[in-house]
Amino acid sequence: MTSKSSSRGDYICRVRYRNQLPSIPFPPKLLTSQPLVARNAQYTTNSLIEQTPHLLNLDSSSGIPFDKLLVDYLDMMETNPDVVRMNANVSDVDKLLMTPPRDEKELNKQGRKPNVTWLRRSEYIASTERKQKQANVPEIRSKLSQQDMEAHTYRTHQSQMEGVDATFIRHDLTTLRHPRTKKRAKKLTPILPDMTCWENVYTIGQFPSDPADNHRLNKRQRLDASSKQPSELDAADRGILRPISNPHDPNDSYLIWFLPDEDSSNVLKQQKTDPQQVLDKPLNFEAVRDYTYRNDNAPGHQNLLLVLQHDEQQQPVMLYSLVKSKLVAQKKRALAPQYRYMNDYEKPNVLSVTYQ
């Protein structure tokens, strides 16, 4: 309904549209449609189509103003690359834009500084001071020739193959010398991978102090000095590190250091003197200390674990295993009194270990 007046017409109520159609008698159903990849047709061409140039057809009814002479000129330049481009009618201002840009590598070789103020060294520093610092730098020159450098670094594929073949050649002890000290070799020992424990993962562990407990440290002070390591006398070198996470804080992960008890330490010391002894009973390890850790597995920190053994002909053989990472442990700090509730969870205090 509307009310009309002399000036304008205003709506009194809104128009409402009602759908009088009945509801659908069956539930909706999903139809399987063909995927988009299967809808595309594979386009194949031949050399004749690729070599045929596509002409630009101009339509006057398209409404776009084309320059017919410019299009013919560009078409001639593409079809006839040997044509000479005339630049007689180019102004002097536009000729500056037609000069080819200079190579940046050539500019760097000439030692020219870029014309950028924020890339230049501050000119308030005295030039004599800069020259004095450069004069104090010692000049290091390598005594190795180019051939020796390529042989030691194996830069090319041929040098790599020659380096692998050279490892199978038995050197002469009379001519073999150290490259720097020039000392002669006395004995040759082959270095082979240790296939018996090749699958084991080794890590160098670095502790901030002696990881033994207070009982072992006090006992070492009463004993006399011996040629053996203190850790070998009380089996402190057979400890176990077990990772654990704080359930209240997922970011708080640390290691628990376990050491064998007195009875298990005696069994492990006897097993060192008699390797043929079978450890058929489980050994108990007690928790000593908590450590936070940082695992560094950079390629520069990888080392080799070498073990000298004898083969079937009783010849000395050096077996190596790869130590891939380095673990740096630090003593875990105690929590503040207001955060003591975060330590209220179950921790393993004793480990039962069975050797096979």
Rank of each mutant, 00 (worst) to 15 (best):
P28M: 04
E78K: 14
M77G: 02
P101E: 12
S33K: 10
A41T: 13
K29V: 00
R14W: 01
N87A: 11
L144A: 05
V71S: 07
N19I: 01
L119S: 13
I140R: 12
Y11C: 09
F26D: 02
L144M: 08
P53E: 04
Y43K: 14
I24P: 05
L69C: 04
P114Y: 02
L70C: 02
N136L: 08
Q51Y: 03
N40Q: 13
L74I: 10
L74D: 03
P100W: 01
L31M: 11
A41N: 06
Y73H: 12
N57C: 01
S142D: 06
N46I: 10
K131N: 11
E104C: 13
Q20R: 13
S145C: 04
Q146H: 13
S60H: 06
R14G: 14
L36D: 10
K95M: 15
R39V: 05
K68C: 02
T117V: 10
N46F: 01
S62F: 05
L97I: 07
N19H: 00
R130S: 15
V37F: 13
V37K: 15
Y124N: 15
L21T: 12
V15Y: 00
N57Y: 06
V137D: 07
Q51C: 10
P101L: 15
S62N: 10
R39C: 09
P81V: 13
D72V: 14
G111R: 08
M98G: 04
V37Q: 13
T52E: 08
F66A: 14
E139L: 08
Q34S: 09
R102K: 04
S142A: 11
A126Q: 01
E50H: 01
P22G: 04
S33I: 12
P22D: 01
R120D: 04
Q51L: 03
L31F: 09
Q110L: 13
T44E: 08
Q132Y: 12
F26G: 01
D82S: 01
E78W: 04
G111M: 04
N40T: 06
E123T: 00
G63A: 01
L48I: 12
V116N: 09
Q51D: 03
N89D: 15
P138Y: 09
V93R: 10
L21E: 08
D75R: 12
Y73R: 09
P101V: 05
V83P: 01
N57W: 04
T52M: 03
K143P: 06
S62P: 01
T117Q: 05
V137C: 05
N46L: 05
M76H: 02
E123P: 03
I12C: 04
S47C: 12
N40H: 03
D82Y: 14
K143W: 00
D59G: 04
R141H: 14
M76E: 03
R120H: 02
S142T: 15
